[in-house]
């Protein structure tokens, strides 16, 4: 890591495990639950959040010294909403097909507390470059969990990955289904996302025991 000092590298690596936005900081849960029924949607959402976090953190960090403290929440919310709306409008005009895939996520991004949470906790007190790294790092941490949950829910729930059947055809009873395997449709329902995240937390904390709460 010639580009990054040790301290900067920590900003990116920490959110991946020990300071994960979902499992430790409890941020951005709603979207993690809503959209992880399919791997593809999880990845699209992760990329969108990565973009918004990177840019948003930089913008907030730029104006951090002129924001009046009393209305800082409004300012933050408006910055993020404006960013997302502009991107949405531009996509609608120049890449209509892409915008149709993404516009579903617009609301989810604006209300995603991971973005607000990092603005408040980091970008308001740190410089440009470090805020940018923090945004990217946390977005990656968020992405990891989303992709793991999306992977298991789609695999066990629908028997597919990225839309391609893995176990054979469920209706024609080919592949694994010929042996009596059935898809667990329950995995597609949102409550199972909660339970999958719960299990991820379990595994993570039994590995790194210093994270255990009492």
């Amino acid at each position: 890591m010639g580009l990054l000092s040790k301290k900067d590298a920590k900003l990116i690596l920490d959110p991946l495990s020990d300071n994960n936005p979902i499992t430790i900081q409890v941020l951005g849960i709603c979207s993690a639950l809503a959209i992880t029924a399919e791997l593809e949607a999880s990845v699209v959402m992760s990329v969108a959040v990565l973009f918004v976090m990177g840019v948003g953190n930089v913008v907030i960090s730029l104006i951090r010294n002129i924001i009046p403290s009393r209305i800082k929440i409004i300012v933050q919310l408006i910055v993020i909403a404006t960013l997302v709306i502009i991107v949405d409008l531009v996509l609608k005009a120049y890449a209509y097909e892409l915008s149709k895939t993404l516009s579903v996520f617009v609301g989810l991004i604006i209300t995603n507390c991971i973005i607000m949470g990092r603005f408040e906790a980091f970008a308001l007190g740190n410089g440009l470059w470090r805020s940018f790294l923090d945004g990217i790092g946390n977005a990656f941490g968020y992405a990891i969990i989303l992709i793991i949950v999306g992977f298991f829910r789609e695999l066990l729930g629908a028997g597919t990955l990225w839309g391609y059947p893995v176990f054979g055809d469920a209706i024609d009873k080919t592949g694994l289904y010929a042996w009596g395997y059935e898809n667990n449709g329950f995995m597609l329902l949102s409550p199972m996302a909660l339970i999958v995240v719960g299990i991820i937390i379990w595994i993570q904390r039994s590995k790194s025991t210093h994270l255990i709460e009492d």
Binding site: A34, I35, T36, A37, E38, E40, A41, V44, M45, S103, V104, F105, G107, G150, E154, L188
Partner: peptide, 10 residues
């Protein structure tokens, strides 16, 4: 649809 849950209603 305008905004159904990706992977489910979508």
């Amino acid at each position: 649809h305008k905004g159904e849950t990706p992977g489910l209603g979508a």
